[in-house]
Simulated scan of single mutants.
Amino acid sequence: MDDTVTSDQGHPPHAGAEGGGLSTRLNWLRAGVLGANDGIVSTAGLVVGVAGATDSHTALLASGLAGLLAGSLSMASGEYVSVSTQRDSEQAALATERRELAEQPDYELDELTGLLVDRGISRELAREVAEQLTERDALSAHAQVELGINPEEIVNPWHAAWASCISFTVGALLPLLAIVLPPVSLRVPVTVVAVLCALVITGWVGARLGGSPVGRSVLRNVVGGGLAMAVTYLAGTLLGAAGV
């Protein structure tokens, strides 16, 4: 908000909306990458564990599909509940702000001025900017400056649920196909290689989107996924050998 007011006092809400829109899209993309990563790791661990216990194509396919469906539906429902809670909180805050603007506009104008002053703007300029913002869209101005909410970008729980479901499913399909398509002797090696390559990609993309060190992110991804497959494969092999 500070940079927006300094550079273009007449159009801060519009500029902020554009920045917020880009930030929102990046957050959705990052969430999609993380969802796909979850699908890869969880399904890979499941099918590799089953492959350690049995060579049955039917058992591998059934367990993989069960893991894919359970994981994608769980991700979707969890995201729906989480985002619905966030949406309810944001709408309640906006309703309160809307009521306060209607009941005590002078106080709200003083409050907005004070918030701008707290951000380093002189009181005279802050008052002028607050008045212009209030004339243009009082609710949007207060929501963005006071609450950190863009009223035009309230999150949609259904969008979040579908995004999580689809991203998890896409990620889960890789280990599922890698375990059921190759010959029996190559199932586990092909799956491990395919999964580790995919984790390198998701780790790299996630790091780039989040602005974090690429090497550390990729290493963490690969080690975590590799460890998950190793543990489940060992468990499956022991259970298979025990005839469980």
Rank of each mutant, 00 (worst) to 15 (best):
Ser72Lys: 00
Pro105Asp: 03
Ile121Val: 14
Leu65Val: 15
Thr134Ala: 13
Leu116Asn: 00
Leu133Pro: 05
Arg127Glu: 14
Leu125Trp: 08
Leu73Val: 04
Glu103Ile: 07
Asp137Val: 08
Ala138Ile: 07
Asp55Pro: 07
Thr85Gln: 03
Gln86Trp: 01
Ala138Arg: 14
Ala138Met: 09
Val83Cys: 02
Leu115Pro: 01
Val129Asp: 04
Thr113Ile: 03
Asp110Ile: 07
Glu103Tyr: 01
Glu90His: 06
Gly67Pro: 01
Ala130Glu: 03
Glu131Gln: 13
Leu94Arg: 10
His57Ile: 10
Gly67Leu: 07
Ser56Gly: 05
Gly71Leu: 06
Leu61Thr: 10
Gly120Leu: 00
Leu109Cys: 01
Ala93Pro: 02
Leu112Thr: 12
Arg99Ile: 15
Asp88Asn: 02
Ser63Glu: 06
Tyr80Ser: 00
Gln91Glu: 08
Arg127Ala: 15
Ala102Glu: 14
Leu69Phe: 13
Asp118Cys: 06
Arg98Lys: 12
Leu65Glu: 08
Glu90Thr: 00
Pro105Trp: 14
Gln91Ser: 06
Ala62Gln: 05
Leu61Glu: 07
Ser122Asp: 15
Ala93Tyr: 13
Leu68Gln: 00
Glu131Tyr: 11
Val81Tyr: 05
Met75Val: 11
Ala143Cys: 11
Ser82Asn: 15
Gly64Glu: 08
Gly52Arg: 13
Glu79Trp: 03
Gly67Tyr: 02
Val81Ala: 09
Ala143Lys: 12
Arg127Gln: 15
Ala126Lys: 14
Glu108Trp: 01
Glu103Leu: 06
Glu124Tyr: 09
Gly52Cys: 08
Ser56Trp: 08
Ile121Thr: 14
Gly52Asn: 12
Ser63His: 07
Glu111Ala: 12
Leu61Ile: 06
Gly114Pro: 01
Glu90Phe: 00
Ala62Asp: 10
Val83Lys: 02
Leu101Gly: 02
Leu73Trp: 10
Ala126Met: 13
Ala76Met: 08
Leu101Asn: 06
Leu68Ser: 03
Gly71Val: 12
Val117Ile: 01
Thr54Val: 13
Leu112Val: 08
Ser77Lys: 02
Ala76Phe: 04
Asp106Asn: 11
Glu79Gly: 13
Ser122Trp: 00
Glu100Trp: 01
Thr85Lys: 00
Gly71Gln: 09
Glu131Ala: 09
Thr96Val: 14
Ala62Gly: 01
Ser140Lys: 13
His142Asp: 01
Ser56Tyr: 05
Glu103His: 00
Ala76Gln: 14
Asp106Tyr: 09
Glu135Phe: 02
Leu73Asp: 00
Glu111Met: 08
Pro105Asn: 04
Val117Leu: 07
Met75Thr: 11
His142Gln: 10
Arg136Lys: 07
Gly120His: 04
Ser56Cys: 10
Asp106Thr: 15
Arg123Ile: 06
Arg123Trp: 03
Arg123Thr: 14
Ala93His: 13
Val81Ile: 15
Thr134Trp: 01
Leu133Thr: 05
Glu111Gly: 07
Asp137Gly: 09
Val83Gly: 00
Ala95Gln: 15
Asp88Glu: 07
Leu125Cys: 10
Arg99Met: 15
Leu109Asp: 02
Val117Phe: 03
Glu131His: 12
Leu139Gln: 13
Leu116Gly: 02
Arg87Ile: 03
Ala143Gly: 05
Tyr80Trp: 13
Thr96Trp: 13
Thr54Cys: 04
Ser122Thr: 15
Asp137Leu: 14
Arg98Asn: 15
Ser84Pro: 02
Leu116Thr: 12
Arg98Trp: 05
Gly114Phe: 02
